[in-house]
Design a protein around this nucleic acid. Structure first.
Length: 394
DNA sequence: AAAGCGGGGGG
DNA sequence: CCCCCAGCTTT
């Protein structure tokens, strides 16, 4: 069998036609996304960093809040990493936030706060790869630079019937080659419109599992549509087996002193007491972030998959369960059981004696949650069972 | 080239 | 419940 053709020929005339049709469609069909109202490279950069492997629907509010908190490169560069992570808490891939912060500091120091406008300078910044560089150059600066994300890859795979697996090196290579050819000769079209139109098509019509071909502006030009293969391209990639993980989270409330009882019980009830949080070791999975004390329940003889099998702190569980929650981290499906616990003794503030900064555990008021770099699971548990008024107290 | 890194919306 | 997302970095 002949190798599939991943390098379609494409005349200049056909390119122009596709560009015109797609950009024309985009002008009328573009979703009103918050960051599309901005021309500030910084604001666009934040949106691109958040959108790396994260859906538009998820990013929306985070982007608004993040920009209120850190309105400029200078503001971000001046912030502590802890504060940046707190604003990022719940978005995941916290490496992105650290890189964003480091890049902001580099822009402030090496570029006098001025956003770089060349691919080379952008690629030199942490967290900016070729997609994000292309996105910034085209969307923020309207430069004719290519970009390929998952949407673009899928649109090209179908449009040109590129028979390859999603994310495969061949398809990625082919898609970038096509994107470069388009970007180098856009005719009348604005680069920012072309790239966003390409992604918009993939996000709204040319979707992975339910493409809406009849509404597509390129339906008559689409090779996969013609051969009836739109749904099967790009071919699915092999996915690693999901792993089940069972966790126990300990809810430890600070012992309330007598003076606190002076106020009405309604206000000093359990929901007001401070909660014990532990700090994850720096580096690695969610490094340095705060969480409810957590241990992984492991079958005898099996290895823990995500967390340590025992408590880091001297805890004793109290009978009964406060609730369970589902969570997922990459390929791990987590069932977390929230249980009351108490400290058997006060642990030393910093047992290793090595670390600087805050120790490995601390008491926090639930209201402080929004200012802390919490893991997503802990944020979820606190919101559902401790902080919220809709907690199942009766 | 492959794996690690979080989380959740939508089919 | 499964899929995969406006990816980057390290190995």
């Amino acid at each position: 069998m002949a190798a599939p053709n991943l390098n379609p020929t494409l005349s200049a005339a056909r390119r122009r036609r596709l560009v015109q049709r797609l950009v024309g469609w985009y002008r009328g069909a573009a979703r009103d996304l918050p960051w599309r109202r901005s021309r500030d490279p910084y604001a666009i950069w934040i949106s691109e960093a958040m959108l790396q492997q994260t859906r538009v629907e998820t990013v929306g509010d985070f982007w608004v809040r993040f920009l209120e908190r850190f309105p400029s490169v200078e503001a971000l560069a001046a912030a502590s990493e802890e504060d940046v992570l707190a604003a990022w808490s719940g978005l995941g891939y916290y490496r992105r936030a650290r890189a964003l912060h480091a890049a902001a500091r580099r822009i402030a120091s090496d570029h006098a706060g001025e956003f770089p406008r060349t691919r080379g300078e952008l690629l030199a910044l942490p967290g900016i790869g070729r997609y994000t560089a292309g996105a910034l150059l085209s969307i923020a600066f309207d430069q004719p630079e290519p970009l390929v994300d998952g949407n673009v890859e899928r649109v090209f795979a179908r449009l040109f019937e590129l028979d390859a697996a999603a994310g495969s090196p061949e398809l990625v290579r082919s898609a970038w080659a096509l994107a470069e050819r388009f970007a180098s000769d856009l005719g009348q079209a604005r680069p920012r419109d072309w790239n966003q139109a390409l992604m918009e098509l993939g996000a709204t019509l040319c979707t992975p599992r339910a493409p809406r071909c009849p509404e597509c502006p390129l339906v008559r030009s689409c090779a996969a549509r013609r051969s009836g293969r739109a749904l099967e391209l790009p071919r699915p990639k092999r996915r690693p087996e999901p792993l089940d993980v069972r966790l126990e989270l300990a809810l430890v409330r600070e012992t309330v002193r007598d003076e606190a009882r002076e106020t009405p019980a309604r206000e000093t009830g359990p929901a007001r007491a401070r909660v014990l949080l532990e700090r994850r070791p720096p580096g690695g999975l969610m490094g340095g972030m705060w969480q409810l004390p957590t241990r992984e329940c492991v079958e005898p003889g099996a290895e823990p998959r995500l967390f340590a099998p025992g408590w880091a702190l001297p805890l004793a569980l109290v009978e009964g369960e406060l609730g369970t929650l589902s969570h997922s981290i990459t390929r791990h499906r987590i069932r977390a059981h929230l249980r009351s616990a108490r400290l058997e003794r006060t642990p030393p503030p910093n047992p290793e004696g090595a670390g600087s900064g805050p120790g490995p555990w601390a008491w926090f008021a639930p209201e402080a949650a929004s200012t802390l770099a919490l893991t997503g699971l802990t944020k979820k548990a606190l919101t559902r069972f401790v902080h919220a008024r809709k907690a199942p107290v009766r």
